[in-house]
Design a protein around this nucleic acid. Structure first.
Lengths: 394, 394
DNA sequence: GTTGTTCGTATGTATGTTAAACTAAATACG
DNA sequence: CGTATTTAGTTTAACATACATACGAACAAC
């Protein structure tokens, strides 16, 4: 359907532009917003007045001037409301409470004993509800309260319908998680794939509108941001890079194919490399597995060092493929594997310089911290609640 | 830089919307445009008046009505102007002359004797100029004349600057082709990668806003359309899918790496498969090479049938990878290899159903005809000249 | 102080969309 | 036939909004 533009749409657009400038800059004044956006000073004044009335913006004292009236400094009111972000993984659940700028004011990691009892959607529902309750309890008072909850899930989920299609390793299919949680929590709940949440956080915090977020843990997925928006694809299953072939006659994957990238770059790949090095039985699902592997490598254990190197090489190959296809501005690593950055990053970068072509050799690759995905999930909920802020689906 | 919206921008936007509706529909009336866009009838009337004055739209008689005044039928004036599109390949040059709807009114294929003499940019300049002259000579009279020339090139080119960075196999680097041609032809010249032109044509003719166009010939490249726009990437080198790894320990590629997709899916791959089947010396650069291979397979030659099958399988693997990453609505094949569609398409689809996951299994794959890339190049020139029409870069 | 500069606001104007009234032209039906 | 009804397109007035301009407020430098 086509979209017609009238005066209200125009004003809303300009208002959003003003708020986005305020969101990005720490502090600004009306005049500098006018200069940055091209909007007339009078227009900016009027829009800012509205935003102040809505509590999204505050006046915070005066700035400096070289010969003239001092500007009234404005800032995005980060504490206008709060959001809860949850990163649900197989081995643990990360929860954060953030303000509208996604600054973390509370966080919690809950270890999941994956082997103890079978995980059901009912159990997860209970656990998630409890996590939200705990976060809500410590939420400061604010004009808008809890804006919403965002949940990042490791698998196939539909952002639009709020339904889980398939969570591998958890064995959960067809679950209307967003509707379920919304009902029991009485707060809007948004869900998305974990790599998408990570990518969204990377975009919001860097401002880079074309980037990849590679989430490597038990599985491998990519979140793709293009022109400041998440690319989801026809069915919302874009970014399943873990199941691209990097070796036509390679290792058998859980998906039934041979040579999937995931089989060479995930925690389970690391475990296999260690077994191949004669490490005996190694369990990727054991608590603290990756941390242990990092420590072992750092203390000089050759089998571990070699396994990490092999994994890094595979990561480099897959990332090079993505670079060749999408030529993004930046690549970010997240997930448990990313915590080995000091060990694997140099090798990854070496492979990219070798395999990627032309300017792709110079695309920077770096790492995002643990709570990235959870923060991104909170950002998702915020974007849902405040459609004035940059949004992934428009 | 942020973009502010005032009344003129608003009107331009709505005008573009109206023209786009007219461009898509064969015939419409003011009222149905109003219904389709949500714009008020009065607004549509006023915008249509402008478009008629600019010759882009014509009134063409009356439509039917059940009880009421008959609507005045409007149509996009396809013959308001013309454009020339050129698909420059190593073995041949395709030229088309089209109206603004990219309907071909003249076309020409020039075989290039690649082995006879070394190809230089000077020689190409002469040949291209001659092709444009020939097309111009047969161009019908029209209110806006020749709107521009679009050139599709097999290699690394910059759409923005109009410069060739690198054309492999032709050995040409650093050539300001657009500026050169614009000067000698006195007509605006736009250039782009051949796969991008094909993708653009596929988008314009199908209206599908998220698709891939795989151009397989001497090399393999992908044109990527997302949200109705070409995805070019940070440096304009997105879509270099031919140089993604599908086999980490595979065949050495001209790019210096091992296992590039191109080494398994291009004309040269076909030649190699034939050699491996004991076909002796086979030359992929020989005129009519692919056509010959198609005929041989169709007449039952097992070596050829087997070679095509192997190639199709590799194509399927690479396309599956792209599907997994981008989850597009449709995939189209172009280039010389695509002419073997009856032979290879079933095998490609089989591989995709096997390797791609979930909904990606159902993404349709089909073929576009020979002149697609040239038509897309013309479409590029048109979009440059008439910024009211759907455009790749906005 | 005086002067010049910068910030923010108030006022009138220009642009453009919309709603509603109106004209035009056709069909349906008694 | 003639009239009511319906649909298409245009005109006009009302409304929304951004812009240009002018102006007052606040402040630095001399």
């Amino acid at each position: 359907m086509y979209k017609s533009v009238d005066a209200t749409v125009m004003r809303q657009f300009n208002k959003r532009t003003v708020l986005n400038v305020l969101y990005k800059r720490q502090q600004t004044s009306r005049v500098s917003i006018s200069r940055e956006t091209g909007l007339n000073r009078a227009t900016v004044s009027s829009l800012v007045d509205e935003l102040i009335a809505e509590q999204f913006v505050q006046e915070v004292g005066l700035g400096t001037s070289k010969g003239g009236r001092k500007p009234i400094l404005l800032r995005f009111n980060a504490n206008a409301g709060y959001a809860i972000g949850i990163d649900l993984q197989i081995t643990h659940i990360d929860t954060v409470l953030t303000n509208t700028r996604r600054e973390v004011v509370y966080q919690n990691r809950l270890q999941m004993a994956v082997h103890k009892k079978p995980i059901t959607s009912k159990l997860l529902h209970t656990v998630l509800t409890e996590e939200v309750r705990a976060a809500t309890a410590v939420c400061p008072k604010s004009p808008r309260g809890i804006l919403g909850v965002g949940v990042a899930l490791p698998g196939l989920v539909s952002y639009e319908t709020g339904r889980v299609t398939y969570l591998p390793n958890l064995g959960i299919t067809d679950w209307s998680i967003a509707a379920d949680l919304t009902q029991s929590l009485q707060v809007p709940v948004a869900i998305d794939n974990d790599a998408n949440c990570g990518a969204w956080e990377a975009f919001l915090s860097t401002g880079i509108p074309n980037l990849l977020f590679i989430n490597a843990g038990i599985g491998v997925g990519a979140g793709i941001i293009l022109k400041g928006q998440l690319h989801r694809g026809r069915d919302g299953i874009a970014g399943e890079a873990g199941h691209t072939t990097i070796s036509t006659l390679g290792v058998l994957c859980s998906c039934g194919n041979y040579g999937c990238w995931e089989q060479y770059s995930s925690e389970q790949a690391l475990a296999r490399y260690l077994r191949e090095q004669g490490g005996g039985q190694v369990d990727a699902f054991a608590p603290g597995f990756v941390d242990g592997c990092i420590e072992a490598a750092q203390s000089g254990n050759q089998a571990y060092i070699q396994s990490w190197r092999t994994l890094a090489e595979a990561l480099g190959v897959g990332i090079s493929n993505l670079l060749q296809i999408l030529n993004p501005e930046s690549v970010y690593l997240g997930g448990t594997i990313a915590e080995a950055a000091p060990i694997i990053l140099p090798e990854i970068q070496r492979v990219i310089r070798h395999r990627a072509m032309f300017a792709n050799k110079t695309v920077p690759v770096s790492v995002f911290p643990r709570e990235t995905v959870a923060r991104g999930a909170a950002g998702l909920a915020i974007a849902r609640a405040i459609d004035m802020l940059p949004t992934h689906a428009r």
